[in-house]
Structure formats: C-alpha cells, structure tokens
Design a protein around this nucleic acid. Sequence first.
DNA 1: TCGCTGTAATACCTCGCGAGTATCACAGGC
DNA 2: GCCTGTGATACTCGCGAGGTATTACAGCGA
Lengths: 287, 287
Amino acid sequence: MDTLETRELRYFIAVADELHFGRAAERLGIAQPPLSRAIQQLERRLGVTLLERNRRGVSLTGAGEILLQEGRAALDATTAAVRRTRRAGGAGSPGESRDRLVLAVKAGAFHELLNKLLDAYAAEPGAAEIEVLPSGMCEQEAMLRDGRADVALMHAPFNSLAGFDSVELMTEGQVAILPARHPLAARKSLSLAEIADVPDLPLARWPSHDTYPPGPGPEIHDQTQLAHLIALGRTMAVYPESARTWLWDEHAAVPLSDAPVVTTHIAWPAHSRSRVLAGLVRTASQL
Amino acid sequence: MDTLETRELRYFIAVADELHFGRAAERLGIAQPPLSRAIQQLERRLGVTLLERNRRGVSLTGAGEILLQEGRAALDATTAAVRRTRRAGGAGSPGESRDRLVLAVKAGAFHELLNKLLDAYAAEPGAAEIEVLPSGMCEQEAMLRDGRADVALMHAPFNSLAGFDSVELMTEGQVAILPARHPLAARKSLSLAEIADVPDLPLARWPSHDTYPPGPGPEIHDQTQLAHLIALGRTMAVYPESARTWLWDEHAAVPLSDAPVVTTHIAWPAHSRSRVLAGLVRTASQL
DNA sequence: TCGCTGTAATACCTCGCGAGTATCACAGGC
DNA sequence: GCCTGTGATACTCGCGAGGTATTACAGCGA
C-alpha cells in the first residue's frame, strides 16, 4: 500500500497546521475521533511516526515535517488539476476547447507592460481570451501552483521563479518614492544606506508570507494606501522605475544607485504544454 | 465539491493511458463496471466531459488532456510525498531524523565529478549518508518528480531543468567517439556535418522517452554495449569530453567544433528546504 | 438479414470503512 | 481532592466502492 488519499493528506495538513486535533477537526468540518483514527491509520500505513503526542498538545516529527512540506505541494498540484480541468471544461474534442488563459498580475503593477502585452497578443491571429487576475504582493507563485492562474508576470528577485519556466521580459532599476516636498526629493540620486534610517520617513512595510517584517514604518496592504501615506509625508517606499507611471504630483521618484535591478518575467508551471500559453509567451518575448 | 481523490486520479489516468475501460480496469486490478461508474461520477463532480465514448473505443476531450497532464503531475507529487516521508521515517523528533539523501545519476556518467563530490562532501562536518541511485538516460527528472530521488546530477541540454532548482557545476565541449583505426579518428577536429552521414559509421541511437529515434544506427541501452560496438568499428557516438575517462585503447575521441556545450548541474525539487540538501549543494558548487 | 463479437453502461447486491456519539484515560492546575 | 483540556477507544450506522450478471449498441462477416 503506497497510496495516499487526498482526504488523508488534507487531514494531516490540518493537524500539522493547528497542532491540535480538536481545532483541526473543526476546521475540516468533522468530529475529533475520526480524525485521530485517520491519522493513526495513516501512520500505520506509512510505517512512520508523524506526530509526537505530548501530555499537552502535539508536535511534528522529522518525517512529519517532510510530509507537511511534500504534502502541501501534492495537494496544491491536485487542486490545480481540478481548477485547470474545470476551466478547460464544457468543451468537446481537443480542437474546440474554449481557449482561455488566466494571467496573474500583482495588483496595480505592470500597467504599461501589461497593456502592451494584451494589445499585442489580442492582435495575433487565433488569440485566446486572457483573463487578468489581480494578486497580492507575492501571491503569483501560489496562484500558479494551485491552479488559480495559468501564467503570471513576476518581479525577480521579489517573486521566486523556482519551480517555474520563465522568460525575461525587461530589466529596470529602482527608485525611492518620496513626498515631493521632502528635502531628499531634490537629490539626483540616493543610496540604500542614505534612505535606510531617515528619522521622519520610515520605509513602508509590505506583508510577505502573510506577516509583516519588523520595523518602524507603517504596514501597507495596497498601492493606493501607500500613495496616500507618501503624499502625506508619512512614509517612503522603494519601487521599480516603472512605478513613475502612477505617481502623483505630491510624489517624487529619486533613482537608487545601489539597489538591485528588478527583472520582469513571464512565468508558468514547468509542465504546461498548451498552444495558447506558447503563443502568449512568444508575443511577450517579442515586445 | 472541489476535491479529487487520489484513487479517482489513478483510475482516470489508467483509462486515459489505455483508452479502453476493460484494459484499464485490469491494470488497476478492479472490474470494469466500477471503473466506468467512477469515471462517470468524476465527470459529474467536475461538471466536465473528460472522455468521448465513440462507437468503438474512447478518446480524450480537451479537458481530459488537461486532466491527464495535470493529474500526472499531482500523482507524482503524491507518491513523492509518500516516498520521502517513508525515507525520513523511523526517526523521532526533527533533530534526530536519520539524515539520508538519494542522489540520482545517469548510470556510467559523471564518474570523475561524482567521486570528487562524494569525497568532498563526506569530509564535511556533519555529513549525511548519500545513496547514489543509477538512472536511465533521461530518467533523473522523473525520479526527482516522483520522489525516488532527492537530488540529481543532470546534463543540460539533454536533461531538462524545468521545474527544478539547480546550480551549474561545470561546462564542457563534446567529442566524437570513434573506433581508433577509423580514418576520421586521425583528425584534430570534426564538425557535426562531417559525422552526420558517414556511411560505415552510423550514429548510435539512445532511447529518449522510452522510444528510439529513427535512424540507421544501432539501438543502444547502456554504455558498455556502446563501448563494445564502437571498439568493433560498428558505430560512433557523441559525448561530453569527460567521457575520455572511460575510453579504451580501441577508442578515439575527436573534439567537435560546433556541437553545443554541455553543462552539468546539480538539481533538486524547487520546494526542498532541507539542511542536508543545502550542505551537499554548497559542497558541489565549491568543487 | 441475422447472429457474433467487442465494447461500455446498467441493475442489483454486499460489506468495509468513514463518520458520528458517548465515553474513557491521563496530565496539569487551582 | 476536583475540574479542565486533551487525545484515544468503543460502538453503531449508513454511504459508497466494489463485485457479478446482464443489457445496449455498433460494426462486421456470412
């Protein structure tokens, strides 16, 4: 028996997340006893101890850590299969399948590039429908993995390209976005060191992996909010140069001399083989 | 209901492979009627037609093609989770887990590099046990995907690095390996065009994706066999330069001026985060 | 035209297992 | 001592996965 049912995987991941059988059962919408039994049975079948049941609570063993990591990937792949199949569905034979592609894009970013890409692709003969799906700051990877999206625009090194196929589309420097009337806004250029500890302008903090990094600056969750706070002189931010397109009069963009360059990629799951995707990628790389 | 059980996936893939319910059922070790019902039910739950039942036999719809492709990836990820968990198993808490890593290597290749790597890594403090797993010509990718291996040595562009993280270890040119007494063996250098159609020395053919490419040369399945056939003057082959280490007196290696260079990488699944793997990769990249 | 064959679908039954309720066992904490 | 919070056990129930027997249907050949 080297089989592992999706249900068992869901159960184990719930327990590993919560480290508490009762809460995990509630999250799964079942009672606690069947959950305990399912995990015991899973451990027996695998021949491996996954959880250490202490007097008060539960902790993962080494094997449990592995199963959590690998199982998350497997579960993502499974839900991706369902989503992509449903999306391709309703169609008949291969030829008539309703061609549609979901493109994940960081909300509010890539305006210029995205417009060019969509226009150029729409002009292609036999172009499919492209649905643009706005994503959170670092959510594109997850969206590709679990099938909410088929292809994504990503910003290396902020997004990780690991596990995906990708083509580089453009490279740009970064700028500091400051309140226009702040003294530093008059500078021709700045270094990272110079903006690291400006007392009256702490750097804005974005959530990464659903948690904010520590620091003095305000916690931001969308670009409009950030634009307001900068205009009010309360914070500053580091952005790729193309951010200039959405700046207000109250903003100033000063090039950063030593910030890492940002490269924009179009990325997709490595196993994708669709004709429609290939067409979009070809168009993008010819921009 | 957006859930898809592993069992259903196995069933669908069997049918999609065989395009025949009876044979698929036999392969799965169940009777045909439950299989028919399972697929119908899967189609109902997904709300998608996966198979076109013609008068005589079965064919895939567009959605079915997608599910076959995505489902294969999901099933691989699931069996990988089981294999890696079992391998990590028997261990107690995270600290004491028996550290062991399976390294997939094309059988008979990488001798020199592999020796250096294993020696260097074994000398590291806290080195884990490395199990070397010989693989077929292009099998390393599959082994990483389905969890038979944790890390692999690969030859780009022969192996595809798509979907994996990797570090480049070395680059080398390619040579033609000829019988020592053949006229071409005296040459200082050759071009691909010159060796493409030598009448008495057809190029040996390796199976790729379990099927041999068409051509006049003999079908090869291991390196010893190839060495014999070359020594006998019956064929020739193109190999990376490092192949010189295993040549016989009856062999000659002539550099190819215009063959693509071969780069050797160490590669692993993008989601791997283990300390042991990181150590091996660090050692490899410092060679 | 009529079987015959190969195919998938349907009808019907069985039983194993997943899930629920009630309860236990055990470790801390006041 | 009791009370609380935790996971494990005992049992019962009902769905659904799986089996066998049969049907429905399309092509093929005589």
